[in-house]
């Protein structure tokens, strides 16, 4: 091992890297990383800039075309019940899009909130570990299915089943008529789309509610059990009140998901804006309207082009409000304990 003794000397670097160089390298790396972190803020700013600037152009054009003042245009936008910015005479009332969005969302929540909450309580408080191990990945898979597949499901599976059920119920209640005398559920309807959206947000709400329940400290459960309460009594009168802000946050975030859902409603709820709250009819939601306009040839700078940004800004502001609310609510339940 003659080389061994010589290598002790050469192992030590004779020329140490310059300290200044090292400091500068660290600084440059830190600033590059900072730029990456700040990019998320830039994305938000660009979203807001694009949405606002195009919406402003939309209103300018409407004012010029219809010879009305800005206030009239804004009033018409928020209270008008006719949304047809593509055909003369222009209808720029956003309410039909909002009614479509709200109706599908309420159908979705009607499905997802009870099922999701019960499933979450069951998984968190009742299910044996082995059952959880099987069911959690299944819920994860459901949450990972592309939404366009759910749209297919709504149009080609749920809606035909609903049509049969609705016809069957009518034949049972009012027998003896010809088939075409009964009410027929249209192929595009908000009920089927809403149910499908509900099934899509079900795993999401379930896992958020479960997180909220898991965040309740064990002592509260133990105290309740020590008083002789059963698991269901503990869950309903101790855990749910303790986790209420987290559970409400889960509902709000689920609602925000449902509002922003696009492909299911674009496939199954119809593309025609219509001011109605009847889930048995078909009507375009805000997102479906954006898709339907984008599907056509969209000349840059046309009124069609700007109208989807005006619809988009409503969507953005609504979900922004709900997400921030949900964020602070869910942060509250983490802080209490």
């Amino acid at each position: 091992m003659a080389e061994g003794s010589s290598s002790i000397k050469t192992n030590l670097p004779l020329v140490l890297p310059s300290r200044t160089a090292r400091i500068w390298r660290e600084r440059i790396i830190a600033s590059v990383l900072f730029l990456a972190a700040i990019s998320s803020v830039l994305i938000t700013l660009v979203i807001i800039y694009i949405l606002f600037s195009e919406t402003v152009i939309f209103f300018e054009k409407v004012i010029e075309l219809d010879q009305m003042s800005l206030w009239q245009a804004l009033l018409e936008f928020f209270t008008g019940t006719d949304w047809s910015p593509l055909i003369e005479p222009l209808g720029i009332g956003i309410l039909p899009l909002l009614s479509g969005t709200l109706t599908t969302c309420f159908v979705a929540l009607f499905v997802a909130v009870p099922l999701g909450t019960i499933a979450a309580i069951y998984l968190s408080e009742f299910a044996p570990a082995k059952v959880r191990e099987v069911l959690k990945p299944i819920l994860e898979i459901l949450a990972g299915i592309p939404t366009v597949v759910y749209g297919y499901f709504a149009l080609l599976v749920i809606t035909p089943v609903l049509q049969k059920i609705i016809l069957g119920v009518q034949q049972f209640l009012f027998p003896g008529r010809e088939e075409w005398d009964y009410f027929q559920l249209p192929g595009f309807n908000m009920l089927g789309a809403g149910i499908s959206v509900g099934l899509m947000v079900l795993p999401y709400i379930c896992s958020l509610v479960e997180d909220a329940l898991q965040a309740v400290p064990l002592e509260l459960r133990e105290g309740s059990y020590a008083m002789g309460a059963t698991r269901i009594q503990t869950a309903l009168s101790v855990l749910i009140p303790a986790a209420v802000s987290g559970i409400v946050a889960a509902y709000i975030l689920g609602f925000s998901r449902a509002v922003g859902e696009t492909m299911i409603v674009a496939v199954a709820a119809g593309l025609q804006p219509k001011f109605t709250f009847n889930p048995l009819e078909g009507a375009a939601t805000t997102t479906a309207f954006i898709v339907s306009v984008s599907l056509g040839d969209l000349p840059h700078g046309s009124l069609e082009y700007q109208s989807i940004f005006a619809a988009g800004i409503m969507l953005f502001l609504a979900t922004l409000f709900m997400n921030v609310l949900g964020y602070f609510l869910s942060r509250r339940y983490r802080e209490v304990y």
Partner: peptide, 12 residues
């Protein structure tokens, strides 16, 4: 918030 923005807004 960005995680919760509807995907179609990214499209816009």
């Amino acid at each position: 918030n960005l995680a919760g923005v509807p995907s179609i807004i990214y499209g816009l």
